[in-house]
Simulated scan of single mutants.
Amino acid sequence: MNTGWQTQDRFLELHSQWLTVIGEHLQDETGQILEYWRVEKADSVIILPIQNQQLILLPPTYRPGLGEKTLDFPGGRVPEGEKAVTVVPKILQRELGIPAETISQLTPLNSQGWAVNSSFSNQKLFGFVAELQPTVQIPANFIGAIYPINHDSIVSLLNTLICLQCRAMLLEWWFELTQ
């Protein structure tokens, strides 16, 4: 599909292990030259771990962009060449201290991934629900909060979560569950 937009030049490309920042001049369909900035990042995964009809969240983690600790679901980046579904067990091992075989069911919330910020970034967000075996012991130092799965508890959790990605996955899951 020809959008009529053309890249005129790339005046900056800055790489780090976490992201690439790109500055470009683009010509729009009217001929106007515009300066655009974008960030290329690896795709992300957010996982809603459920055990015994309870959502498990991580201990609050410091977020430099906010300058404070936030309560979040487990999540992480999808390395280049891997599929989102293959990183879920690795993330749960790292962030909840549980082996892959303790996941009794893994359900994707979105199979294509959602654009995190389509005008600024190429990053997609994938969500999964991981049903954990009822008897698996999650080490206490890996648990930040536990929320029972009911309306009042989900409303309380939504009032607590700051991360929009975590909120989006929770709302998507809750919407599907209550339909």
Rank of each mutant, 00 (worst) to 15 (best):
N117S: 13
D152K: 11
E172M: 13
A140M: 01
E172H: 10
A130H: 04
Q137H: 12
Q17N: 13
Q112D: 15
F73K: 06
L106G: 06
M169Q: 15
V85F: 02
W37P: 00
L26S: 08
I50R: 02
T7S: 06
I149P: 09
P49R: 04
S153M: 01
L106D: 03
I22N: 05
E13Y: 11
L170Q: 06
I56M: 02
I149E: 09
W114R: 07
L34V: 12
V87H: 00
F11V: 11
P59K: 02
G76L: 00
E101H: 15
D43I: 04
L19W: 07
T86L: 03
Q123L: 03
P64L: 08
A168Y: 06
G144N: 09
I149V: 15
Y36A: 14
R167Y: 02
W37G: 08
F126S: 04
V129Y: 00
Q8A: 06
W174P: 10
G97C: 04
P148E: 08
G23I: 02
F73A: 03
P59Y: 01
G4P: 14
S121N: 05
I91N: 01
R63P: 00
Y36W: 12
Q123M: 08
W174A: 06
P108A: 07
A115D: 14
H151T: 15
M1N: 10
L19P: 02
W37L: 07
R10M: 13
P59V: 06
